[in-house]
Amino acid sequence: MDNSNLVLRTKLIDRLFHWSMVSCFMLVALSGLSWFFPSLNWLGYVLGPPQLARVLHPFLGIAVFTLLMCMFVRFVHHNLFVRTDLTWFKHIMEVLLNKHGQKLQIGKYNAGQKILFWGIMSLISLLFVSGLMIWRAYFAALFPVPVLRLALLAHSVAGLALILLVIGHIYMGIWVRGSIGGMISGYVSRAWARQHHDRWYEEEIAPTKPLPSKRHG
C-alpha cells in the first residue's frame, strides 16, 4: 500500500488503551447482562462459573474505568464542543443517510462522537461509584440498605445505557468503512479523512503535505 496516501489518526498508545479497555469491557458487560437478564445467564460464563464471574466483574470494571480515564485525558481536548458542531447537528439526517455533500466543518471527532465520548465518560463514572457501593465483599456493608437499592438501580440503568451506546459505537465503526481498520493500524486514508473529518484534515493534515507519513504511531 502506498503509505503517502495514509495519515496517522490514532497513536499507538491510544489504540492500546482503546483495545485493552474493549477486551475488559466485553467481559464486564456480558457478565453484568447475565445478572440483569437472568434468562441470559449463560453470558456470564465468559468469566467462568457464576461465583467466579461475581468475583472478577468488579475488578475488570475498575480496569475499564481506569483505562477510560486514561483515554479521557488523551482525548478530552478533541471532544470539547465547538460552534461548528452545530453544522453537524443541523445536517444530522443527511449524515445518517450518507448524503452530505457540503463540508460540515467536522474536526477530529464529529458532534455525535463527542456525545458518545461524554456519555461513556459520565456513565462509566456512575458505574464506578455505584459499583463500589454495591461491592459486597468490600464496601456494601458501609451503606444502609435503601442506599444500596438506589445504587443497584443506578448501576443497572447506567450499565444498560452504556452497553446500548457502545452497540451504536460499534455499528458506526462497521458502517463507516475504514474506521475499524483505522483504530487498529492507526492510519486512515487521506480521502477518508477529508470525507469524514474535513476540518481536521484541513487544519491538521493538509498543511503538512506532501508528508511522507511517519510510521512511529
Partner: peptide, 10 residues
C-alpha cells in the same frame, strides 16, 4: 447456587 452478590440483602 448462591454467588454472593448480596442482592437479596437489598
Amino acid at each position: 447456587q448462591c454467588i454472593g452478590c448480596g442482592y437479596c440483602v437489598a
